[in-house]
Design a protein around this nucleic acid. Structure first.
Lengths: 123, 123
DNA sequence: TATTCTGGTTACTAATGGGTAACTACAAAT
DNA sequence: ATTTGTAGTTACCCATTAGTAACCAGAATA
């Protein structure tokens, strides 16, 4: 999922894209936001992602220092995720992307324009 | 390459990720910047991308209104690409990503730390 | 005693991504 | 007459990605 050729670039921008440049990670970071959230909550808020892929993405985000993982030794297990300082510092960028899209997005060419048929998070 | 489930979301952020949330598009937009550039130049600046994929990405960027394509009816063919207003408006966001990475990137854990072995653009 | 609950992991399979090489057009240069 | 150059397109194939279903622990609940 991470592209080592990107992550080993000497260009900081390319390296950044190597770590967050896929479709799921920005979504996950945006969903977590400033709160602490559990694995199951994430999985239900983003139903289109499979648990397997969600696990992988969370692991990579943790390895890349965007995410903190707190596993309680309980049964049934409980795991809390929250953004690190680095992850939190990325939130404003996601805000900019949102605003950029709102300002410039072209209307969909075909299909229904009924906003109600759209879903909040891929699912 | 584009994920329709993302592009049809009612969340503007998710839609944005649907259009620019992959590894090549931010790189391409960043390389073009404010200049006008030809296909061959792009291909040589980003050698890791194959011409096939570069073509696909450019086509999608054009369809999504980030890119303007100017084909001259000459032989050999000449095609100029440049960012649209929407594309240009995305550049500051890429700048933020670059700064964010410089500020928070953790040092690579293993392998060579020799920056000279790093490449500027994936290739 | 059986079921539920959580946060995974694993094995297997299907779908997609992406690479390579060959090919196009035609003018200009060798 | 052949090669060169540009910006692709196409067919074919392999590698990676992602989905599905089954399985785990062990306490609490029914």
């Amino acid at each position: 999922m991470r592209d080592d050729r990107f992550c080993n670039s000497n260009c900081p921008f390319t390296r950044a894209i190597g770590t967050i440049g896929n479709k799921w990670k920005p979504i996950i970071i945006n969903v977590i936001g400033i709160r602490t959230i559990r694995f199951g909550q994430l999985a239900s808020i983003i139903p289109l992602i499979s648990r397997k892929v969600l696990t992988e993405q969370l692991k990579e985000l943790e390895e890349d220092g965007l995410l903190e993982r707190l596993a309680y030794k309980e049964l049934p297990p409980r795991v809390d995720y929250k953004l690190s300082e680095k992850g939190l510092a990325f939130l404003p960028i996601l805000e900019h992307i949102k605003e950029w899209n709102l300002k410039y997005e072209v209307a969909p060419i075909s299909g229904d324009t009924d906003k109600k048929s759209r879903i909040s998070y891929p699912g």
